[in-house]
Write a protein that binds this DNA or RNA. Structure first.
Lengths: 143, 143
DNA sequence: GATATCCTTGAAGCCCACTTCAAGGTCAAG
DNA sequence: CTTGACCTTGAAGTGGGCTTCAAGGATATC
């Protein structure tokens, strides 16, 4: 695949793919005839991983470290992946919250709109849900 | 709750809560004795919704519109919530991706590290998963 | 062979979500 | 009655993740 194809498959812009490539997060092969960058399916997996980790507030430099370890086949020791492991308590609750949002969103155009649950109810459920265990301070995401 | 309490409960910094308040996304009551901002449990729900939508790439101005409609009790018409509805196809796949990451993360410190699945396998699964239906271009998230 | 659409690069620019600053007020504990 | 930890405000600053620019090459279609 070339940049634009990968970008479409991954749901980002071609410029974003180029940016990640410049920063060394993606390492495409080259078409020897014209110097174009060629991405395989693994690159799509990397791109999706980058997008997910970004959404959890992990910065590009940390993501780069993680991908580099993946390339080197480093053993998955939990302290090796510190920036990821720190996010762990939040991921499960983020998943639950997104599920609540997804359910709500689906209800508002499948159903007859007037009997769908209100946004207020969604907000209420997000406020009273089992929170991630927060003891000391902000989570460090969205630095 | 005051700013710091809400911030802790919501997993963000107090400054972030103040920022959302200044921008009108949160509308706390006031302690008449000292002018301190007082947040109720609904504010926590709003804060979590803001954080989730931000993670989906929705900008603060769009989030503000959505919250304003929620306050006015507007009916949940799908075109009213355009910036949210646009994200809908991506939310389900984002959830699946986060679940894959969560499973992988949990395996690397519950199990004996050496027999845990490698990051390469996680990346592979992210690359070959059923993609969100992408027909025309980038998703518009992370503007 | 022109036109349009893709691709390359490094450097420069931009956006916007926060953060920090500055100058103060509140309040509980010691 | 001072220390320290909280709170207020608007304005100004920062950081990082893209975007755009500029100048040019490749490829396919008319």
């Amino acid at each position: 695949m070339r940049v634009t194809e990968l970008a479409r498959a991954g749901g980002v812009t071609a410029e974003t793919v180029r940016h990640y490539t410049r920063e060394g997060l993606l390492r495409p092969q080259r078409d020897p005839r014209n110097g174009y960058q060629l991405y395989d399916e693994e690159a799509l997996g990397r791109l999706r991983l980058i997008d997910c980790l970004r959404s959890l507030g992990v910065g590009l430099p940390d993501i780069k470290k993680i991908l580099t370890w993946a390339d080197q086949g480093s053993p998955p020791l939990s302290d090796t992946y510190a920036p990821l492991v720190e996010q762990r308590p939040y991921i499960r609750s983020r998943i639950h919250e997104l599920q609540a949002i997804a359910r709500w969103l689906e209800s508002i155009d499948h159903d007859n709109a007037s009997e769908a649950p209100s946004l207020k109810q969604l907000i209420e459920s997000l406020g009273s849900a089992q929170p991630a265990i927060v003891t000391d301070g902000p989570c460090g995401c969205h630095q």
